[in-house]
Design a protein around this nucleic acid. Structure first.
Lengths: 149, 149
DNA sequence: CCAAAGTAGTCAACCAGGTTGTCCAAACAT
DNA sequence: ATGTTTGGACAACCTGGTTGACTACTTTGG
């Protein structure tokens, strides 16, 4: 049997590929996984580029590049920070929120299909098991998002 | 609860980070995950650089770069192909086999610890569940290894 | 048997997504 | 008031991949 690490990598890749395929059929800009993480983060948080970078685990410069793209494509806008004249809030546009909604549906479809393929109870065990593992490894501080190759 | 994709990504990252940390303490060359996949593949297969690239899911040129590094560091050597004068077999040196043995111990330690943290039965369910999922998605052809960010 | 097509490997140019380093203007802590 | 920290932008660079071109060798089909 493959080591669990392999299985994690291959499964992540497998489900991600399917997501990407379905997204491509719809024909949007070539959004990458990182963009999805940005949207999901912006949805619940009012943040600056620096904070976004910390969340993604990249430098503020790298985060700024991503924000630039998303801005050009109309998924986010920058708003002046109310009290700090240096800073800007990055927020989702309607287009951004629409995309996120679509993506979330897609993800939950795929998760549903995974449940049908391997059994909903098995899927549930996987999710609680991995959650517990992350809790065990990271305690209460945020785990790294980005897989490293 | 986080979507299963997130959990896969974060868990892969979490266990990979631990592996990397422990490896660093031993103080070898800065081997990356890809190198590990190479070693594991070379262990059971007599292959050329082209075949290695196919297995990794990268171009032959990219595979050649990796082989070059590993050759310089003494983990692999190139041998002339017995019948095809263009081709070369890439094989593990003793140093390469030793590294692989070490890495495998490390991985199984980490898997063991994961089992202790979340329960061996849960871990077993995760492994069989993910294996079944991969079977479902890819049938009998080889799944992509490399996580994409 | 030989010509045409295909393949292993190398070299070179390029690209994408990060990094570090530097700077400015604004904010914060004495 | 001043010295230090911080958000953001700009630039140079690094790494791990890509595509394209080319050579030497192999394979295939008439």
């Amino acid at each position: 049997m493959e080591p669990v690490t392999m299985l994690l990598a291959m499964s992540y890749r497998a489900i991600g590929d399917q997501f990407h395929d379905r997204l491509k059929q719809i024909g949007l800009e070539p959004l990458r996984p990182a963009h999805g993480y940005v949207f999901r983060f912006l949805k619940d948080n009012r943040v600056t580029t620096v904070e976004l970078g910390q969340h993604l685990g990249v430098t503020k410069q790298a985060a700024a590049k991503i924000v630039n793209e998303l801005d050009e494509w109309g998924y986010v806008i920058r708003e002046p920070h109310p009290t700090d004249k240096r800073a800007q809030y990055v927020t989702l546009t309607t287009k951004g929120r629409d995309y996120l909604k679509l993506a979330d549906t897609l993800w939950s479809d795929l998760e549903q299909e995974m449940g049908e393929a391997i059994g909903p109870d098995t899927l549930a065990t996987i999710k609680t098991g991995l959650t517990a593992y992350l809790q065990h490894v990271h305690g209460d501080d945020q785990p790294g998002l980005r897989p490293v190759w």
